[in-house]
Design a protein around this nucleic acid. Structure first.
Lengths: 169, 169
DNA sequence: TATAACCGGAAGCCGACATTCCGCTTAGGA
DNA sequence: TCCTAAGCGGAATGTCGGCTTCCGGTTATA
């Protein structure tokens, strides 16, 4: 693989990440190409179709989250703080839409590793009495998945919590 | 206006409400017509263009909210409970997307009345010490507006509250 | 310097929607 | 009951945005 080809591949992935985060999984290929400073031809040569591109994106994304989680665990004093830091980071990055794309495309093994890791933390945090016991790892993953991009399921599950959050304490 | 015409008008409005709630302000006119059990021709005869339709929808929507608010005030024991009930109702109805459409089209006078009414309640609830003082009517309106359809602004403003909600108390 | 790999973007294709138009149907008054 | 203006459906047409292909020109690298 020629050096320029590799460079372009990276740029495309980066541009795709931003584009997908902003406009959802069906962001125009042309937009992605333009942002990457590349012709559409190049984009298609590297990723024959949108699914291939999304799959690559998903894989990269899971790895980023994994790193973020490790980092949070190292930097925070306890499990619950680490979880919070991790969630805040993930949502802040505004990568919700990518998570959604990921949900479709999947990157099964990597994702599972992430879930397992997070699960340990949740158990710990709950054992510490720092985290509500009625919320699980799945909820957190769903939180990440849907927070930014599947608005219609948020209310059902999270509105009550949100309202509690609004209550004076 | 002939009886069948009026009936169709109502059906269209109803179908549009659902369609917009599900698919956003740019739900296909054809879909709306089909759901209303009506030909596109009929839809266009009644509402010359999408804006007209959305405007009608917005107006109806504000009135619904107004009613809901009145009802909540009558049924709940205090201001804060009424606000909660109102918010829950509004979001539950899944009409977030309509609110968004409304934000664009507007129905200024009706909307203002709603805001004023809600504002009284908020002051009351805060005076009671039942509601966090650092959240205002505008926040509530924004909550309604964006909760379901403008996912990218939720995190900035509401994530912290959400997390507090997750904390064991 | 030769050449195989790579690049950009114009061109063509396609599907999804908006909007129009007109021949048929029907509500409702005389 | 009959008449007719009001109303109806949905095929047809036009537009637009995005996908994908293709090829003449460019460039990395041996």
């Amino acid at each position: 693989m020629r050096a320029d080809a590799r460079r372009n591949r990276d740029r495309i992935l980066e541009a795709a990440r931003d584009a997908v985060a902003e406009r959802g999984a069906d962001a125009p290929m042309e937009l992605i190409a333009r942002r990457a400073g590349v012709g559409v031809g190049t984009l298609y040569r590297r990723f024959p179709d949108r699914d291939t591109l999304l799959a690559a994106l998903a894989e990269q994304y899971v790895h980023e989250l994994m790193d973020a989680l490790d980092h949070a665990v190292a930097a925070e004093p306890d499990a619950w703080s680490a979880i919070r830091a991790f969630v805040v980071y993930s949502v802040d990055k505004g990568r919700g839409a990518i998570a959604a794309a990921l949900a479709g495309t999947s990157a099964p093994q990597a994702r599972q590793a992430l879930v397992r890791r997070l699960d340990e933390l949740v158990r710990l945090a709950q054992a510490d009495g720092a985290m509500r016991p009625d919320v699980g790892t799945d909820d957190l993953m769903e939180l990440l998945n849907v927070f930014a991009c599947h608005p219609d399921v948020i209310p059902k599950r999270f509105l009550p919590l949100m309202l509690d959050g609004l209550d004076r304490r």
